[in-house]
């Protein structure tokens, strides 16, 4: 699959009194894990609801799989885990899974077989005939996750997939997401926990108050927003080539050289990989090469800090809308 699976083009959504999503454009490439990051009330859920065709944009357009079709037209190819979880409490676990798959157009018998398979896989095999209400919250979350992937969708949209999960289930969720990517699926997920995003995402987009602040790969984003330090340590006294590299003002603007250890401040737009390549080519043996850029977390807080504080106040309403 080529091109982008999801493309939002200057999408705007207003609710009475405020703009939840403001001229947001983003592209989710096929086969990648894409993170939509933002503080509470940033418009993540509204954006996802527009992708899912639950809400209609006031302006702009959303296209899926490179066509003009809406989320509902492609419901068989899309799995959706909404922010607010919920299942029919009185129904039996397997029946819920079968019904939700049927609503996406999967044949009943196939849905039944796959549902049982997934339940076994996530350790809920014995619970398939129990009522949903009898399950613990964590189990219900698993069941709901199964319902998003049961029909083997090409695109999986997860709104805050890790919220409310314990560490064990968080790991299960991460593994399953990574497995989905291995099988060529595209995953779009939203979160406000940067640690998840940094480790999982191939690409990400940070939004606040409905606007895009930055997007790109995690490395590019941290690099572009203050990822300007590299720490180098040598096994043996560094060769002559090292000082030449450190003196190259296109790469490094500042050096604190301690002999076998140096801290470099990188030049605007320079690539730390280039420094590493030239050091190795120059015969240096490195014991450490650390792009000591600020974490995504720091970038995020720097970028959305003031906004986050303000958005918090209206967060509830945005999530509701």
């Amino acid at each position: 699959m080529h091109g982008s699976v999801v493309a939002m083009d200057r999408v705007t959504k207003r609710f009475t009194g405020h703009t939840a999503v403001d001229a947001l454009s983003l592209e989710v490439p096929a086969g990648m894990i894409y993170g939509l990051l933002g503080p509470n009330g940033a418009g993540k859920t509204t954006a996802i609801r527009m992708i899912m065709n639950i809400l209609i944009p006031d302006e702009g357009s959303v296209s899926l799989f490179g066509t003009a079709g809406t989320g509902r037209d492609y419901s068989a190819r899309i799995g959706f885990l909404p922010e607010e979880r919920g299942l029919y409490p009185k129904m039996r676990v397997l029946d819920v899974l079968v019904f939700l798959a049927e609503a996406k157009g999967v044949d009943r018998r196939i849905a039944r077989a796959r549902g049982q398979e997934w339940l076994e896989r996530l350790g809920l095999g014995d619970w398939s005939l129990r009522r949903v209400a009898d399950l613990s919250k964590g189990m219900q979350q698993k069941v709901q996750f199964i319902s998003t992937v049961l029909h083997d969708p090409d695109l999986v949209v997860l709104d805050e997939p890790f919220s409310g999960l314990d560490p064990v289930n968080t790991q299960v969720m991460k593994d399953t997401v990574l497995d989905l990517r291995r099988r060529g699926k595209t995953i779009l997920f939203s979160t406000h926990i940067m640690e998840h995003a940094e480790k999982l995402c191939d690409q990400l987009c940070i939004i606040a108050r409905g606007r895009k602040l930055v997007d790109g790969t995690p490395a590019a984003v941290t690099l572009a927003h203050g990822g300007r330090h590299v720490t180098v340590a040598f096994e043996a006294p560094p060769p002559e080539a090292a000082s030449q590299v450190f003196a190259d003002r296109t790469l490094v603007v500042g050096v604190q050289d301690y002999g076998r250890y140096a801290e470099l401040e990188l030049a605007e737009g320079s690539d730390p990989q280039e420094i590493l390549r030239r050091l190795v080519a120059g015969g240096a043996r490195l014991s450490r090469f650390d792009i000591a850029g600020p974490s995504l977390h720091k970038v995020f807080v720097d970028l959305v800090g003031p906004d986050a504080a303000r958005a918090e106040a209206v967060g509830g309403r945005v999530a509701d809308a």
């Binding site: 899912m52 639950i54 509902r72 419901s75 899309i78 959706f80 299942l87 029919y88 609503a103 996406k104």
Partner: peptide, 17 residues
Amino acid sequence: LEEKTTRIVEVLISSLR
């Protein structure tokens, strides 16, 4: 009301009109 309060309606509405 049940579908609304359990929020399952969002999943349904993304699949059906």
